[in-house]
């Protein structure tokens, strides 16, 4: 997994509530793309492209300088709906590595963390203000520092955000959970053996505990 430490980049405002994962990755049943890095063209497909494949000029990610955005500032409940990790993958594929919103769906939030992407929760007021500020292209660059847990505007105004210390460490180091979990497999096997002793109807007939 790619680490997330600090990012200075263009932030695009998308001040909309309940942006869902069908909005973000609309064609789950369609193209059957299997390579996450090839999913970029799918990102926000119905908002970004006309039916003939030409870009829709009214969509923020098609407008300079926001067409180079690495940060998205959205409304509450970002990433709601389907669990499809394609939503995180396709955003990553077009370079969006940080999303700032008042709240996220629990599943999407977790998916970001697994892909070196930083979901930042700020208050509704702070998000609105930030969104309005970066709407002026001259102010579009933000600095996001995960170690310091700060989002800094071009005028020096700083917002501090909360993130679980464990999630923060994982992102800073660029490591996923599997390695850490493997390190305690003995404990997991012991837990499972005891658990299935008490719940024999769940024991594996092949004795895989």
């Amino acid at each position: 997994m790619r680490a997330f430490t600090r990012l200075s980049g263009i932030a695009a405002p998308l001040p909309r509530r309940n942006v869902n994962t069908d909005d973000i990755y609309p064609n789950l049943g369609g193209a059957a793309i299997t390579d996450p890095e090839a999913m970029g063209p799918c990102a926000f497909g119905n908002w970004r492209w006309n039916a003939d494949g030409s870009p829709r000029p009214d969509f923020i990610l098609n407008q300079p300088p926001y067409d180079r955005a690495q940060i998205l500032i959205a409304g509450a409940n970002f990433g709601c709906g389907s669990a499809r990790e394609q939503a995180a993958w396709c955003m990553n594929a077009i370079g969006l590595r940080c999303i700032i919103a008042p709240s996220f769906s629990d599943i999407f939030y977790g998916n970001c963390l697994k892909n070196g992407m930083l979901p930042v929760r700020l208050s509704e007021d702070a998000t609105d203000a930030l969104s309005a500020f970066v709407s002026d292209p001259a102010n579009a660059t933000l600095d996001v520092d995960l170690d310091a847990r700060t989002v800094t505007r071009s005028d020096g105004c700083v917002a501090i955000f909360d993130i679980s210390p464990r999630d923060r460490q994982r992102l800073l180091a660029g490591v996923d959970d599997i390695g850490a979990t493997f390190a305690i497999m003995d404990r997991i096997h012991a837990f499972a053996a005891d658990y299935h002793h008490r719940r024999p109807w769940l024991a594996d007939e092949r004795g895989a505990d």
Partner: peptide, 23 residues
């Protein structure tokens, strides 16, 4: 019972466990 992403699912298949925030 809850939905998870594909990366979290990989963790489940490999270890039969998952790291989760308490709701």
């Amino acid at each position: 019972a809850f939905g998870i992403g594909s990366s979290e699912f990989e963790h489940v298949l490999a270890t039969q466990t998952l790291v989760q925030p308490k709701l």
